[in-house]
Design a protein around this nucleic acid. Structure first.
Length: 302
DNA sequence: CACACGTGGCG
DNA sequence: TCGCCAAGTGT
């Protein structure tokens, strides 16, 4: 049952070099894994860790979170960024409670049907929480495969082919496959990094196509990120921060980001936050979503 | 498929 | 300083 060198080398390396992260401790349940994966969507590991601990202490089960008001989820989310993820996590908790009896589902199909869970998170939960065998592909995995397998400096744009590429490398045994998924991500996070890869410390340097090719810069950079200063994103962030800090007290609309130089843009931002369900506006004052069960929700339950 | 969506740290 | 980057997802 020999697996290919890439797998054995990476898994061996992972066995000795895996960081001691909270969601890797023995006995961590599927709910904790799921919450950690939500928080890790575009937020760095080091910033997630303290928030994860606090979140799980407050809401140890999906049912506990489902009973809370969305506003409390958004407030607890604090400055993790992309606050809609707090809303999505709250909604997923409701769905888990009503559709799955409060148990985080194991099947990728079921996981994908939950709000805020896509190709990555669904497989990460199935694999890391339940030991199922699936390819788990995140930005680290894509970069590692681009370099080691394809000899390119950067991965191309995300594609469903990424799943197939990882699937083709996956060892047969579930446990090995889970380790390989985690090891590949870990390599990308700590050694095969985007900016300054530490190829001298890489356990698979001898197998690396990018190295054999002489580390060519194959371009293929991701699209430039829009300027944050003065953006809708920034105003939305300011508005939401004010509401978080005053929650549960409402704030008069005119007191939300009052110094913002472009009032029209600020008003549009507030409207978009309402559309997104992140805030509610009533009688000229705003607050975080209180989450009265809507008629559709109440009657949707079987 | 390209784009919007927060926030902060690092080279 | 400032642009790049971070365990993505939904539209």
């Amino acid at each position: 049952m020999a697996v290919q060198p890439l797998v054995s080398d990476l898994n061996e390396w992972f066995g000795h070099n895996a960081r001691d992260l909270p969601w890797r401790k023995p006995g961590v349940g599927a709910w904790a894994i799921l919450v950690s994966e939500f928080m890790l969507q575009q937020t760095p590991v080091n910033r997630v860790i303290p928030h994860l601990q606090a979140w799980l202490q407050r809401w140890p089960t999906p049912a506990a979170l489902a009973e809370a008001a969305p506003a409390d989820a958004v407030t607890q989310w604090a400055n993790l960024g992309y606050p809609r993820r707090a809303l999505w996590l709250h909604r997923a908790a409701e769905e888990i409670t009503t559709r799955h009896g409060g148990v985080v589902p194991r099947d990728v199909e079921d996981l994908l049907a939950l709000t805020g869970i896509g190709d990555y998170t669904a497989r990460a939960v199935a694999v890391f929480a339940y030991g199922e065998r699936h390819p788990v592909v995140d930005t680290n995995t894509r970069r590692v495969l681009a370099r080691v397998i394809d000899g390119r400096s950067q991965p191309g744009p995300p594609s469903r082919r990424d799943l197939d590429a990882m699937d083709a490398l996956l060892p047969h045994e579930r446990e090995d496959a889970a380790l390989f998924n985690a090891a590949t991500m870990e390599l990308g996070a700590t050694i095969c990094t985007a900016r300054a890869p530490r190829c001298d410390a890489c356990p698979v340097a001898s197998l690396c196509a990018w190295r054999s090719a002489g580390y060519p810069d194959t371009g293929d950079r991701r699209p430039r990120q829009a300027t944050y200063e003065g953006s809708d994103r920034q105003v939305r962030g300011l508005v939401l921060r004010a509401l978080r800090e005053s929650s549960p007290s409402p704030v008069a609309a005119e007191d939300l980001a009052p110094d913002w130089p472009d009032p029209a843009q600020r008003d549009r931002a507030i409207d978009s936050l309402i559309v997104d369900g992140l805030i509610e506006l009533e009688d000229g004052s705003a607050c975080l979503p209180r989450g009265r069960k809507s008629l559709s929700e109440a009657s949707a339950a079987p």
